[in-house]
Structures are given as structure tokens and as C-alpha cells.
Design a protein around this nucleic acid. Structure first.
Lengths: 209, 209
DNA sequence: ACACACATGTAATTGGTTACATGATTTC
DNA sequence: GAAATCATGTAACCAATTACATGTGTGT
């Protein structure tokens, strides 16, 4: 079944090979991380398993930044000191497996959104609490929107002719659309929440910033 | 820390008491389930823990549908047969704890969206695959939109003067806004994906880098 | 007669995060 | 000289789903 993490790794290695667990983690953070996160605790075991199944293989070129010894010194861990970089690339079998997975219908796991949950129970909360949450929501989303726009700008400048580019842009645009819709919604929501707390008048001494 | 599940339960019991684990599960499915799911495996242990901490307590009225013996027969399990209904209500301490939690900033756990992930790697997929996924996405979202609209209609008719109503509607409207944005995005996405596969014409059954 | 809703709980398993161990090299 | 980055991996823990066990009452 391969635990999904495996497929993310296959996918990333299909775009660029010769990547280590560390690299993969970083690549994720700057790209798919916005809708799909992975941690070391998942990545390293997954790499091992993929290699054992012959879907990935150790890559040739070391490509250390500039260290003095690109030589593999021991086994997996140079006793003491920075461990050797262990990079991998996709095998043909790995690419085939990736394609198989891509062709299967995507599964949707139900989202868990604590913001909406708290808003849903907003009536129980002390006055001002829900307004505060919506403000927080706005702030996060505005920041995220700026980030996405920045990613788009850089991407268009650097990768515009990369063969994957249009797919990347599609996912980015999806994110942007979602955020914009959320922000538009939040305007109305804020107004409504404020109007719900005002008219009652005095009882709301805890409406802090 | 109370594991969040506990708070959902507190929240639901704050709206309506005298609910069993079974009831709570069903209530969730018709309401917060669209953005927050819980399974029996979480609910029953959580109920036990909440009761042990005095945040909820066994409710008085049995309210069995129409069974002949609303009497508690033994302990937790009537040896053989349908187990006794064990309903709970919120205690004042429970309500206080709920309010505390509501006032704290919501945490955002990163979403895991397999649809976007597959679209991101769409270049690697066989032709037609991504288009297919987007169509699937559209179908699901159209259905969901109808469901949400239905929920809104029923809600407005039945609960319009329920004190929690406006908060519920806010979360519902959020969902509707997200779905609409997704559907609008998908129109453009479909067109682009289709145009990507048409023009190249024949030679592209394995279009890899 | 059959299926489905009622009803509670536990156990097994998977999935995933966080913290730990370890220390050299690069950058400010 | 301090701080961040490079780099791999394991262990402990937490969260959550699924399957199992059990069988009656209700509606078609």
C-alpha cells in the first residue's frame, strides 16, 4: 500500500533526482508543503523501504556543497560528525509505480478545521472571542496570500519553461482562489459578529483588541 | 490537554444535553462532521475520561425510543442484547472548560489534500489522468454544494431562532464559499488541461521529461 | 424474512509528530 | 565566537481508524 509518503517521495524524485532525505524535506517545505506535509520520522523509513523494493536507488553524484571529503567514509553513519549524504534517484520501476498511483482516484480525508469548530460553538464563548478568531483567520490568510503571490512571481521568472510548470501553477491558483474566497467571506462574517455583540450593549467588557 | 475530541463532545453537549456516544456520533455526522470527524474509537474513551474529570455526568432521562424497559438493568453492559443507553450532560465545570478552550487561539494543522498532490505531479501521469481527477473533483463538489444548500434550507426553516443559529450559518457559508471558489477554479483548470493534451497531437503517450 | 438502526465498548493497527543523539561546516 | 544549516536516523509517544464482539427492536 506504500503509505502515501512513499508516493510523495517518488513524485519529487521524478521531478529531480539525486536527492537525500534532507533535501526532500526542504523541497516539500517550499512546494507541496502547503497542502501536504511530511516529517523526518516518515521520510527516512520510507526511503529505506522504497530502496528495498527497488523503486529508488542510491544516486551516483555526491554533490556536497564544498566539503573536503565527498568520499563515503563508513556505512550509514560516520562515527561522530556529520553523517554522509545519502541521495537517491528514481528507478524505472519507481516511475511506473508512481504513474500507477497517479492514475488511481484520489482519496479525500475529511479535513479537521479547528477554526470552524470554534466558530460553530461561538455562542458558548465569551464575548469578543469569535471576532478575535476571525481576525486571526484574516491575518493568517493575508500573509499566506502574499506568500503565494511571491511564489507565483518567482516561479514565473525561473521555471516558466519547466515541463511541470503549468501543473504547479494550477495548484497554486487553487490555493489563491481558496484564500481569496475565505477572505471575502471573513468580511461579512466580521460585520455580522460585531453587530451581534454591539447591540446587547454593556455586558461585554472583555472585547479586547 | 484533553485531545480535542473531548472539546467537540463538550461543545455538542453544551448545545443539547442528554446525549449518548451513539447520539454524539450521529449529531457530528449531520453538522460539524463536514469539517471535523470523530469515530467511536475516540468518542467512547473520551466520554469516560470526561466523566472521570467531572466535566460531564450521566443524564437522568432515559428517552428510549419506545422500548419496554427504560430501566437500567445492570452495569455498563446488559449481558447479551442491546446495551443500555448511557447518556451524558454537561456539568458547570464542563461548560467552564469549554469556554476556556474556545478562548484560546485555534491551531491549524496542515491539510493533506491528495487531489492537489496528484495534480501537482500531473506531468508524470498518463494522458487524461489529471483531467479525470478534476472532473471527479467537480462532481464531488457539486454534490456537496447541493447538500450544503439543503442543510441551509432546512436550518433556516427549523432552527432560525435557535440561539446558535447564526454561528452555524456562518460556518455553512464558509463551506459554500470554498466550494464555489473551487468550482470556479476548476472550470479554468479543465480548459487548460484539455488544451495541454489536445494540441501535441499524436506522439505523446509517454510524454516524459 | 430481512435489513437496518440502536447501542456500547475494546483491540489491533496504522499514521504521524516530536524529541533525542551527534557534531562538522558555513555564514554573520 | 555564536548561530544556523547540513545530515541521518531511532525511539517514544500520541492520535485516529477499523474491525470485532454482541444481539435486540423496528419498519417494510
Amino acid at each position: 500500500m506504500q503509505s502515501q509518503t512513499g508516493y510523495v517521495i517518488l513524485g519529487l524524485l521524478s521531478i529531480e533526482g539525486n536527492q537525500s532525505g534532507y533535501d526532500i524535506r526542504r523541497t516539500i517545505q517550499g512546494s507541496v508543503g502547503y497542502f501536504w506535509g511530511e516529517s523526518y520520522g516518515q521520510i527516512y523509513p520510507a526511503l529505506k523501504k522504497l530502496a528495498a523494493e527497488g523503486l529508488i536507488e542510491p544516486a551516483n553524484s555526491p554533490q556536497r556543497t564544498g566539503a573536503k571529503s565527498p568520499v563515503r567514509r563508513g556505512g550509514r553513519k560516520t562515527a561522530g560528525g556529520r553523517p554522509d549524504r545519502r541521495a537517491y534517484s528514481l528507478t524505472p520501476a519507481g516511475r511506473a509505480r508512481l504513474q500507477e498511483w497517479l492514475a488511481q482516484p484520489f482519496r479525500v480525508d475529511p479535513p479537521r478545521d479547528e477554526f470552524l469548530l470554534k466558530l460553530f460553538f461561538g455562542r458558548e464563548a465569551a464575548p469578543g472571542v469569535s471576532v478575535e478568531h476571525v481576525r486571526d483567520f484574516q491575518q493568517r490568510n493575508r500573509r499566506l496570500l502574499r506568500t503565494f503571490e511571491e511564489i507565483g512571481r518567482i516561479g514565473r521568472a525561473k521555471n516558466a519553461n519547466h515541463p511541470h510548470f503549468r501543473f504547479w501553477i494550477l495548484t497554486l491558483e487553487y490555493g489563491v482562489a481558496q484564500i481569496r474566497a475565505g477572505l471575502r467571506w471573513s468580511e461579512g462574517a466580521l460585520k455580522e459578529l460585531e453587530s451581534m455583540e454591539k447591540p446587547a450593549g454593556r455586558g461585554q467588557r472583555k472585547a479586547r483588541q
